[in-house]
Design a protein around this nucleic acid. Structure first.
Ligand SMILES: [Zn+2]
Length: 401
DNA sequence: CGATTTTGACCGGCGC
DNA sequence: GCGCCGGTCAAAATCG
């Protein structure tokens, strides 16, 4: 159980590749140089620049702080003028000067700290993104041998039923992945989620036994809403934990943007898995509490809403729905990232989904080896009793880059 | 008795 | 504003 998880962590921490990758990301080199000067103007400038792409909250805070300082200066200025009438001007002036200097220093310090904060935030984004990429990689690596074993040992009747076509499909899978993502993302699929469920079923049945990867995309509002919206992502799992021990410097402002987008996407990522199952719910290793059920408009099958109860406050939700006519197909859509470590069985799936989603949505991982990722992403060996896994798709709330 | 399911109410977004 | 719709809440019911 734990070994797998632990394996991930250790691999993350000790891998040279990661460190190198992390080192590559250094997109505030300019800031650092300017920061060393401690020049207020530069900092302010950067600050402003940052403000545009930061979250709402931070900007407000900054404004508040600045106004407060300004008020202070005005107050002291008035005081000075009133006192200056007495006659002792030089000492007062000096005092005043000192004070202003102090204030400037404080302000500069504050700006610097803000910049630092911002930089750390970006760093965290980067690291998270890479974490997901690596996680996916690891899953793909750990799953391939398992599948091979499963294939070799044909004895298992219902357990770990390997998907048959996998032999040559490995390289294909990834490519299909990307291709489909590209094409389908480009093509306007307005509301794939419900209305086109029939189509998807057809697609699915059309190539039964073959892994189909779709990318459904539900555009919400404008693309503008992606930059901010950084409000306490409770969905972020352990990565924050091992992040703290290191403060790597980052580079590559180009990757930065991509990373941010990727992270934003990962946060809202939806991964839908369609499986062929008679059971009403596939066991994925997590505990779920049903919190709702609705009848979908287009099809007679109700849709059930579940919430993860493995940890209090885990934001992960999933909805399970049966396909309209082919009732044997069960569509499970996961949303969010787990708050807590998952049991390994669940990890096989969940990490795959989230990580695959990250890859899907970002198109290409920032500063990660693309070559190694071509391994099979689709989870195959699953929990006993779990049906053949047919499809996996991810959706982004906005058109992918 | 605690956890989970059921199920109608409720709510926010969106199109008219 | 109104009604539809997808999604969630929460009280009651049910389960183990
Ligand atoms: Zn969870």
């Amino acid at each position: 159980m734990d070994p797998v998880d632990h394996h991930i962590v250790s691999l993350v921490q000790s891998s040279d590749g990661i460190k190198r990758v992390v080192n590559e990301m250094d997109f505030f080199a300019d800031d650092r140089s300017s920061k060393q000067h401690d020049k207020a103007d530069d900092d302010v400038h950067h600050h402003h620049h940052v403000k545009t792409e930061t979250e709402h909250h931070g900007a407000d805070q900054d404004d508040d702080v600045n106004t407060g300082l300004n008020l202070l200066t005005t107050n002291s200025a008035s005081e000075k003028s009133s006192v200056a009438g007495d006659g002792i001007t030089s000492s007062q002036n000096l005092k005043e000067k000192q004070r202003v200097n102090q204030l400037a220093d404080v302000r500069a310090e504050l700006d610097r700290i803000n910049a630092e904060n911002q930089r750390l935030k970006l760093t965290l984004n980067q690291v998270n993104s890479n974490y997901y990429a690596l996680q996916m990689h690891l899953v793909s690596l750990t799953q391939r041998p398992r599948n091979r074993i499963a294939e070799s040992s044909e004895a298992n009747t219902q357990m770990n039923r390997p998907i048959e076509e996998k032999t040559h499909g490995e390289g294909m899978a990834a490519r299909q992945f990307m291709d489909l993502v590209q094409t389908e993302t480009k093509a306007e699929n307005d509301e794939l989620s419900e209305s086109s469920s029939e189509d998807r079923c057809q697609e699915l049945s059309g190539s039964p036994g073959n892994t189909i990867v779709e990318s459904m995309e539900r555009r919400q509002k404008n693309n503008t809403s992606r930059n901010q919206r950084e409000d306490t992502p409770e969905g972020l799992p352990h990565p924050a934990g091992w992040l703290s021990n290191k403060g790597p410097k980052f580079n590559n402002s180009k990757d930065n943007e991509q990373t941010q987008q990727t992270m934003a996407m990962i946060r809202k990522a939806r991964v839908s898995v369609r499986a062929r199952s008679e059971a009403s719910m596939i066991s994925d290793g997590c505990q779920w509490r049903k919190y709702g059920q609705k009848m979908a408009k287009g099809n007679p099958c109700p849709r059930a809403y579940y919430r993860c109860t493995m940890a209090t406050g885990c934001p992960v939700r999933k909805q399970v729905q049966r396909c309209a006519e082919d009732r044997t197909i069960l569509v499970t859509t996961y949303e969010g990232n787990h708050n807590h470590p998952l049991p390994p069985a669940a990890m096989a799936m969940a990490s795959t989904t989230s990580a695959a989603a990250s890859t899907l949505l970002s198109g290409s991982m920032p500063s990660a080896d693309h070559g190694i990722m071509n391994s099979n992403i689709v989870p195959k060996g699953m929990l006993p009793g779990s049906p053949n896994l047919i499809t996996l798709s991810a959706s982004a709330p906005f058109p992918t880059v």
